[in-house]
Every structure is written in C-alpha cells, then in structure tokens.
Design a protein around this nucleic acid. Structure first.
Ligand code: FES
Ligand code: FES
Lengths: 142, 142
DNA sequence: ATAATTAAAGACAAATTAATCCGAAATTAA
DNA sequence: TTAATTTCGGATTAATTTGTCTTTAATTAT
C-alpha cells in the first residue's frame, strides 16, 4: 500500500508525537530502537521529513529530531511528503490518467476505495493516533 | 496499489472476457494492441496467468489465449494469483504481522479500508466489468 | 515432411527502491 | 581550543521489479 519509506515515516512521526517532555531532541538511535527499523535507511527518511519541514533537526551532542510546535499533522501530509500523491490520483489499471471523461472499467468502484483511504488519512492526526499508543493498546514494533 | 504485473493481469482478463465468439484463441499481438502494454512483459504475465489456471493457452498458428468456460472470475482471484495476498493481510506500517492482539496504532482505521478494497475485488467479476466496456462507457487504453 | 506461426522458458538487462557507508558540517561540553 | 557527538549529503551497494531477448517446443497449413 505504502512504500517502505512511507511506512517508516508514519512510524517516526507517531513516535515523535508520543514524546512527553516538550522541546526534547530525540536521536536517531532512540527512534530506530522504538520503531524497530534499519538505522541508515531511517536516517534517510528523517532527512526527507526534515527537508519537507514536517520535523526539525539539530546536530551535535544531545541533538536529534522533534516535531515543530504547530497545528495538527495528518497522516495524509506525511504520505504525500514521502510517497507523493500517486496513490490518490493514479489509475489503478495504469491508464495514462484517471479521469471521469476516459475512465477505466473499474474506475467507479476503485474511486470509492481511494476516497475512503484518502478520507482516513486526511481525518487522522498523529496526535490522535498517539493516544492509543500511550494507553498501551497499540504497538509500533513487534 | 497493485504491481504493474497486477494491473496488466486485470486488463488482460477483462479484455479476454469481452470477446464475443466463444472458443476463439486470442493472440499476444492483439492483446497488447488492445490494452496498450509492453509486449514481452505482457507475455510473461500471460504465462503466469496460464500456470495459475486462470486462462488457457494454445501454441502454433491461430493459437493464443482464452478464458476457460467456467464460473465467474473475480478481480480478487486475479490479484491473489499475481500479487499474492499481501495487500489484504500485511500491516500497513510494516509490523511483522497484522493482528488484533498486537495491532499497530492505525490498524482499526486501515482494516476498514482494506476490507472495503477486498469487498470490491471479491464482489466484482470480469463478466460484470466487461459490460461497461462493450457499451463504450469505459476504456482499457488511452 | 516441411515451413511458418505462436506460446513457453529461461537468461539477461534496465530501472526503481531499499539500504548501507563514509566524510563533512554543526553543535556541545570539557 | 579541542574532542566527542550527531545530523547532513552524496556515493555506493543490494534487492526487487520491470522489461527484453533468444532458443525451444507445440501446432497448423502447405
Ligand atoms: S481511470 Fe482507472 S481508476 Fe480512474
Ligand atoms: S497491525 Fe498494522 S494494519 Fe493491522
């Protein structure tokens, strides 16, 4: 459904959101420990999230990553930043473009699924998702 | 959403279903023409569909491919045959397994999306889909 | 029988994605 | 100021997917 980088990006953002002490910088080492992902690859995803402005970074001892203090972040923003908008806009049969004027034979049915997916991603914020995690009802690794 | 091979498999099956003359063998050349896909790669997808028993093939002059005369084929069968069941069963965040006992923080919301997708694929047959094509309301290529 | 046609099969090549490595730059603390 | 720490950035490697090519086998028509 999402790329590996997209999956890891979601986990990173959700984990950063769970942090209690405001302003704390969270290091790569801690992140990969808590979300159980390959270190070097995760560093690259963190870099992309930083360049996209979804997180902040600080180098040096006690440096790391953190969420900027601002409005709620949706899962949709994260997926768009890492995987692009293809999953929402491309024809599921691979036609050059997905449109109402030249629809593929499964367009109507799949449009509904895609809209459902988009709706979930747009309406879900990492702040909302983190709550279940903190309550111990959900997990970010095994 | 699906692999390129999966997309082409769906288009192949839908196109074969549109054929009017029962028992006709439809060649690779005609298929790639009608679904606008790379010839050699499409040949490989046809091979996989044949081995999976979803279509029949015949070599030699006037050979080709056709649907076996049997019960309706669902889009679900086709995707399972080519892409496997991963899209229906794997955790969207990449956890080792998707389960109710150790769910990731977005499990509930995405399970609904996946079930929606599975429902569409299971309840849609190529026979149903071909109708819109024959009426000219839908397209398999630009 | 022979030649032409078509799919089967496997080796091969290209492109994309996943993942690693390493030197440089920034920051902190001693 | 120096050394240690940590991210940045680019290069590189590995794995997977996509796509091609070439030879063989089956079938048909001559
Ligand atoms: S045209 Fe195929 S999904 Fe819209
Ligand atoms: S555990 Fe992640 S989708 Fe079910």
């Amino acid at each position: 459904m999402f790329s590996r980088a997209g999956e890891i990006a979601l986990k990173i953002m959700i984990y950063l959101a769970t942090d209690q002490q405001k302003g704390r910088w969270i290091g790569l080492r801690e992140i990969v420990q808590e979300i159980d992902s390959p270190e070097a690859f995760t560093a690259k995803v963190l870099q992309r999230l930083t360049r996209q402005g979804l997180i902040r970074s600080l180098r040096g001892p006690s440096g790391g990553f953190q969420l900027p203090n601002r409005r709620a972040v949706t899962l949709h923003e994260i997926i768009i930043a890492i995987d692009g908008e293809g999953i929402f806009t491309k024809c599921v049969l691979g036609l050059a473009e997905c449109s109402e004027s030249c629809p593929c034979p499964v367009h109507d049915k799949f449009k509904a699924v895609r809209d459902h997916l988009a709706g979930v991603l747009i309406s879900t914020t990492i702040e909302e998702v983190k709550e279940g995690l903190l309550l111990g009802h959900y997990y970010l690794k095994v």
